[in-house]
Amino acid sequence: MTEMNHGRNGRPGAFSDTVAMDLASGRAVDLAELYALDAVTDQERQAIEDYVSAAPEAERAAFLARVRQARETLAMTFRVEEEPPADLFNRIVAQLPAEAAQQEEKPDAGTSVPLSGRAAVPGSGDELAAARQRRKERRGPAGARRWLAGVAAAAAVALGGVGVGSYIADQNDPLNQVVRAGDLREASVDVSGGGTATLLISPSEDAAVVKMNGVPAPPEGKVYQMWLIPKDGSAPVSQGLMDEDALSKPAVVRGISSAAALGITVEPVGGSQSPTMPAVAAAPLGA
């Protein structure tokens, strides 16, 4: 397909593999359409919002204009209609008083409740303000963090649960437990720099097995470090290090039920307290 090559052959400003790299190389505005289409993961959405909310006014305005236009375009284009069940409206109305009461209790519900925070049009100034607010709330006393946003937090990060270096690369028992779980689900993500990371995820075991395929050895003096990114927005928690030897072995990551995603970064030998951006891979762990 000739068309496929065109995209790669590089007019200036061609996309890279990851949103993090696009942001880092100044292509945020070009992500507007993907963002408007919800064709990004939650983590990427967050990274884009974080970036745009801190961007210079002109760049932010350009991004927001493109998002608005893309949304108008989508609303005009995808217009399938179907009659909902006749009683649906009554069911909705039946819920209104409770909602209204909640509003009275929390006049600022728009920024503090996830459900209503989302209802502001994402990408409008309103939503970015909400994103800033959420970020602020997430930061807490431990300091800022930006996952995939290209900026790592230097502040102290609590290492909860499994500490650096303690992940189990070659103990067969826990591995087999996960792999034999009935609810095993497989996911695969690209690793920037080459190869993929395959995750075997078992909610019932509250664990995932991570296997790297064709991933090059880390650069001299560096290791790969795995992180769980908690759902509650708290700081990423290290799940251990992978050097060249460990790369060929599956690793078990536990405690995934409270995590939104698993991320992999390149860190100096010995590992870091907080991830160095950009991440080379990030896999949503799903529900």
Binding site: R68, L74, A75, L96, G110, S116, V121, D126
Partner: peptide, 20 residues
């Protein structure tokens, strides 16, 4: 119902807001 007050006509049409 909860967020109608946040609709801003300058930021797009109502239908676009809703479909977003």
């Amino acid at each position: 119902w909860q967020n109608a007050a946040k609709f801003d006509a300058r930021a797009g049409s109502p239908l676009s807001w809703l479909m977003t």
